[in-house]
């Protein structure tokens, strides 16, 4: 695919990510926010595809859309007080927050501009990875990065057990 086409897809995805991310923090119906979050995460998976990391893209959709977002929606549906109400997503700190956001966006912009001079002119990020990149990933997870991998697993296990302990009734 020509560089220009990748650019077009990249821009479409970026706009989708930014618009949906703004919707997550601005819509007044919390269910709509959750759906906007799904759209945002899905578009991020699209970026992963552009970078040639298909496995990451599939994992992103599987874990974030398939599990995390669905659990969020489930929680929203079960919380009856939350479901019908129009929520406000801003408080008195909104203006300050906006200023901070603008400031950090500008800092990020300047840093990126300095670091990757002319990144906008040639988006050559979509280097094709070797087709067995999943194999490589698996090998590294089982050899060089086995310890971090296991530590993360134990962390997740601890979080799960913690959630169950918190949620269960004392004498159930």
């Amino acid at each position: 695919m020509a560089v220009g086409d990748v650019g077009i897809v990249f821009w479409i995805l970026s706009v989708a990510i930014i618009v949906s991310a703004c919707m997550v923090v601005s819509l007044r119906n919390i269910f709509h926010c959750a759906l906007a979050l799904i759209l945002c995460l899905f578009a991020v998976a699209g970026i992963f595809i552009l970078l040639g990391a298909e496995f990451l893209a599939a994992a992103q959709v599987l874990i974030y859309v398939g599990a995390v977002a669905i659990l969020m929606i489930f929680a929203i549906m079960l919380t009856s007080n939350l479901a019908a109400k129009k929520i406000t997503q801003t408080n008195e700190n909104a203006l300050v927050g906006l200023l901070v956001c603008v400031f950090f966006t500008l800092v990020g912009w300047v840093l990126l501009k300095k670091t990757y001079e002319g990144i906008w002119s040639h988006l050559e990020l979509a280097r094709p990875l070797p087709s067995d990149n999943i194999l490589t990933l698996g090998k590294y997870l089982m050899t060089q990065y086995a310890l971090p991998f296991e530590v993360v697993s134990i962390l997740l296990l601890a979080a799960m057990i913690g959630a169950i302990v918190l949620a269960r009734k004392e004498n159930a």
């Binding site: 998976a45 893209a57 599939a58």
Partner: peptide, 10 residues
């Protein structure tokens, strides 16, 4: 796709 079955699950 090299992620075939994973893509379907996703």
């Amino acid at each position: 796709l090299n992620i075939g079955i994973l893509y379907i699950m996703a």
